[in-house]
Design a binder for these strands. Structure first.
Length: 390
DNA sequence: TAAACGTGGCG
DNA sequence: TCGCCAAGTTT
């Protein structure tokens, strides 16, 4: 047998084993608390009822980096439109993306549809019932695989989200700042894995983090683990978990071109390339988004649809903050008469992104991401204002 | 491994 | 006004 480097099993880092008695005490206390304070959420099964794996999965995808309040209406709309995973798989991709508009992180919507197709076509319309099987699916990572496995299939695994990281950082008084502390926090959380009510335990951990063990001003006096928490004992709960300082957000500048068809007020939109920022979503045309100085008018107009003439610069700047940069966009507006609109259609025929007219009454269904809706709204408001020099 | 990837609410 | 934060995944 060749003596190559021994396969390094990417196991969790070593942490002191939790005392089994303490573990069981903590588990009992948390589940008792959960039974008394369990929140009613749209995707949550009634006590004693079996959770629908499709609903659990859908909710978990929507809840990634997203608040319960924001995800709720989307969850209900999706389940209403597409009650089963096979319905979602059969839906048109554009329809799914349009319904996702406004929720953000649009790769989730692309992967959502792809995942539904895999489940429908390769798994007979049923989700894999193991963590490893779920992990194979598009858009499902370590957290979501563990969440679905525990909540929908009673698998003894502990999903680790931001809540669980915070709860564990405090319970064990882990001073290492995030994200460096993630491996240790995962290992600590994993020690709670158990066959008894794994789904409820997972949701209880997250509820605890969402309602009592909150980022600021944690309510330790009401916590089921009060008296058993290292950070509480040390009086440092509100300082944990520590975080590495974040870098500054650069500013990108853009000019958006709002093109309206005078005859009916239709708006010119197109579809963005499939990958990257806002991939596959609808947009209004514009300049590239570039760091440095704001665009000067002539340079911007070189990117204008149809021709550089006839555009009016609207007053004001639209600011939109993304995770890794801030966008500051000016808006230029132009109304096209019948002949000009026809010329634009001819000029852009066959172009990538399927440039098209969206009638005003269809704007709501067009699926504009928030930043695009903001630009359009700015033009709607700005039309009553005089133009300013750029 | 680190960076990309949205949005809205809150203090 | 602004930074922080929310049930993370992908490349």
């Amino acid at each position: 047998m060749p003596r190559g480097r021994p396969a390094k099993p990417k196991l969790a880092i070593a942490v002191p084993a939790i005392d089994p008695d303490r573990r069981d005490r903590l588990r009992r206390a948390l589940l008792d608390w959960y039974d008394r304070h369990r929140r009613v959420l749209p995707w949550r099964a009634e006590p004693g009822q079996t959770a629908d794996p499709y609903a659990v999965w859908l909710s978990e995808i929507m809840l990634q980096q997203t608040t319960v309040a924001a995800a709720g209406p989307y969850f209900r709309a999706f389940l209403d439109l597409w009650p089963r995973v096979t319905d979602l798989a059969a839906a048109r991709r554009e329809a799914v993306l349009a319904r996702w508009a406004g929720l953000g992180y649009y790769a989730r919507a692309r992967n959502l549809h792809a995942c539904a197709e895999v489940v429908a076509d390769c798994h007979g319309g049923r989700f894999p019932d193991t963590e490893a099987g779920l992990l194979e699916l598009p858009g499902i990572g370590a957290y979501t695989a563990a969440a679905v496995a525990s909540i929908a299939f009673d698998r003894p695994t502990v999903p680790v989200d931001g809540n669980v990281e915070r709860v564990c950082a405090r319970l064990f008084a882990i001073a290492t700042p995030l994200p460096d502390a993630k491996p240790e926090l995962r290992a600590r959380a994993a020690q709670f894995a158990h066959d008894h009510r794994p789904g409820d335990f997972a949701q209880a951990m997250m509820d605890l983090g969402a309602t009592l063990c909150t980022p600021r001003r944690p309510a330790c006096h009401r916590c089921p683990w009060s008296g058993d928490c290292a950070a509480e004992a040390a009086g440092i709960a509100d300082t944990l978990p520590a975080r590495l300082p974040k870098g500054d957000r650069p500013v990108r500048h853009a000019v958006a071109f709002i093109t309206l068809r005078a005859a009916d007020g239709a708006l010119r939109i197109r579809t963005r390339p499939d990958s990257g920022l806002l991939g596959g979503m609808a947009e209004v045309p514009g300049t590239p988004w570039e760091e440095g100085a704001p665009w000067d008018q002539a340079a911007a107009l070189a990117h204008a649809p149809l021709s550089p003439q006839g555009w009016r610069l609207l007053p004001g700047v639209v600011v939109h903050v993304f995770t890794h940069f801030r966008l500051e966009a000016r808006v230029m507006l132009r109304h096209l008469d019948r002949a000009e609109a026809a010329a634009l259609d001819a000029a852009e025929a066959g172009e990538a992104g399927d440039p098209r007219w969206c009638p005003p009454e269809a704007l709501g269904r067009a699926g504009l991401p928030s930043v695009m809706a903001k630009l359009v709204e700015h033009a709607r408001i700005g039309t009553s204002e005089p133009g300013l020099p750029l």
